[in-house]
Design a protein around this nucleic acid. Sequence first.
DNA 1: CCGCATCCCACAAGATACTG
DNA 2: CAGTATCTTGTGGGATGCGG
Lengths: 141, 141
Amino acid sequence: MATRTAAQRRAEARAAYDAYLATCPARQLLDRISDKWVSLVLNALADGPLRYRDLERIIAGVSQKMLTQTLRALERDGLLSRTVTPAVPARVDYELTPLGRSLLPVMAAIKAWAETHIEEVRTARTDYDRGVAAELPAPRP
Amino acid sequence: MATRTAAQRRAEARAAYDAYLATCPARQLLDRISDKWVSLVLNALADGPLRYRDLERIIAGVSQKMLTQTLRALERDGLLSRTVTPAVPARVDYELTPLGRSLLPVMAAIKAWAETHIEEVRTARTDYDRGVAAELPAPRP
DNA sequence: CCGCATCCCACAAGATACTG
DNA sequence: CAGTATCTTGTGGGATGCGG
């Protein structure tokens, strides 16, 4: 029969929505800055250019793989520049581009909201967790 | 010997850094809004309260699991309220709290930056990809 | 209508080892 | 120093079916 199943219809809706989201600028930006390492790199480079090794040291827990991957992604998006100075050993500096710098105020806005409201959020969480716990009365031994 | 291996030192650094990040307000906020569905739910509820079914319909590609999971997380953080109207069938409304509403300007700032600079990013990407392609000259058969 | 429990897999990311 | 290459593992998220 011509009628599609519910699963099929959902799959179609998903495909269409994914396509839409792929073109949504805000979505793309969120995908970038939401990355754990991206925000840390941006923050580290806010004060000036740094070498690969310095980034690795400052962002204490990052693996080589993730650091390189992150730097490549940001370079590709034009948010930072990569400068190779041929020497032995080689030297590579990373620096925010003007485009990258223009993103810092946005990050600052996020930070500001977070710091202003974090207490409310924490309170809400403990309240919520208490409420949930209350619905499951502790078994009396 | 007392000397720790490089792997051990890195593991410790990671643990310490993870602990630090877990307490960083900005990091926590990013973890929330970076979620694909969170931003969509926030956006959908910006104009007023909606029922579960309506959200499912508006956010076309979402699975039940993710929608429920997302709504619970936002409720727990005090960003939206969940109101159950006992009836048959049951009716549940979701609505942004004042705290949730206060987040909308931040989302708007992200959106604004994205829409303003998306073209630069797109240009940077194609330039970068062309450059990479140029470094790997097509194999002459 | 609203939601939870279960199974399952694809993919992200860490560990490790090796090069220019 | 600044990466690349390969392997392995953890987990986010989809599909499905049941319960209030």
